[in-house]
């Protein structure tokens, strides 16, 4: 080997590789930078007004009349909470059922049909879901139960459907991650399929399933267009399932196009509250799935 020639080529290649590495590192920080910039902008735009009017009056105030400088977010916080809880009541049982059927009961062929259909569910635009709510669900609720139809109930059902893909895909992943030996052991002991699911698989996949529910919650809290279309948007604390309701997201989306001055700031403050809720949910979901990864 010709040592000197070798070294020259080598140094050039090595330098190139180091440059590439540096460039990739910079690129790799893009997601983090975007997160930081978003946080800075939303928080920077939204927090001053919160402190000007007092955190308590902002979060616990029950009147939202921007024209009279009344910025109480309580009805929207409660609204988001109700609608999300409702979505979970609908979405969790259906989602987990689908996940169990997909992993434990369905034949390969049936799975091949159901899985793509459920993945389609994730691709349908939220405006289409909202529209279906308006056209079918809202009139149905109005006729059957009375009230305006645009309601907590309608929003819960539609959001419940919308969070299904999240719940299903993550639960399926965590059910599939349970070692086959657990399943075989349980069956060998004479347990039925369902008993195996109930006593062995569910406990083993628990943290993943919880993470799926929390992430589904995040989706429900964050959904905007469908909620605007079917929830009724009254900025009042709802007193029944059939009452109209406004969520934090709707509050922003409804008024953003014309808000100015303090009103706009208050909408950003709404965004801050939403942002905090989402970050808390994300962190919990991350922590639970990290715990799952650590358990061998």
């Amino acid at each position: 080997m010709d040592g000197t020639a070798k070294k020259r080529v080598g140094n050039k290649l090595e330098r190139n590789d180091r440059l590439v590495r540096l460039a990739l590192l910079v690129i790799a920080f893009s997601a983090v930078s975007v997160l930081v910039v978003i946080t800075v902008f939303i928080v920077g735009q939204g927090t001053p007004i919160m402190f000007r009017y007092g955190l308590k009056s902002f979060l616990a105030g029950t009147s939202w009349y921007p024209s009279e400088k009344l910025f109480g977010l309580w009805p929207m916080i409660v609204g988001s909470l109700f609608v999300t809880a409702g979505a979970l009541v609908i979405g969790v049982p259906f989602g987990l059922s689908c996940a169990i059927v997909l992993t434990e009961f369905a034949s390969k062929r049936v799975r091949g049909i159901i899985k793509p259909i459920i993945e389609l569910l994730a691709g349908i635009p939220s405006v289409v879901y909202g529209f279906m709510g308006v056209i079918i669900l809202v009139p149905f609720i109005r006729k059957t139960f009375g009230g305006p139809g645009l309601s907590v109930l309608a929003a819960s059902i539609i959001l419940g459907i919308m969070i299904l893909p999240t719940i299903i895909s993550i639960s399926v992943d965590s059910l599939q991650a349970v070692p086959p030996s657990y399943r075989e052991g349980s069956i060998a002991l004479g347990a039925t399929r369902w008993q195996t699911v109930k006593m062995v698989l569910f406990p083993a996949a628990r943290s993943g399933i919880i993470a799926s529910i929390i992430l589904g919650m995040g989706r429900a809290v964050g959904e905007t267009m469908a909620t605007i279309m079917i929830a009724g948007n009254a900025a009042e604390v709802p007193h029944s399932l059939l009452a109209p309701v406004r969520t934090l997201t709707s509050n922003v989306a409804l008024e953003m196009s014309y808000a100015t001055g303090e009103h706009r700031e208050a909408l950003f403050a709404t965004g801050v509250v939403l942002f905090v809720i989402i970050m808390v949910l994300n962190t919990i979901a991350n922590a639970t799935s990290a715990k799952r990864r650590k358990q061998p």
Binding site: I42, T224, L274
Partner: peptide, 16 residues
């Protein structure tokens, strides 16, 4: 960062 970004609702992106 990537995981958090994935959870942020689109309306927040819109605001930003």
């Amino acid at each position: 960062g990537a995981e958090c970004l994935a959870g942020i609702p689109s309306i927040i992106f819109g605001l930003f």
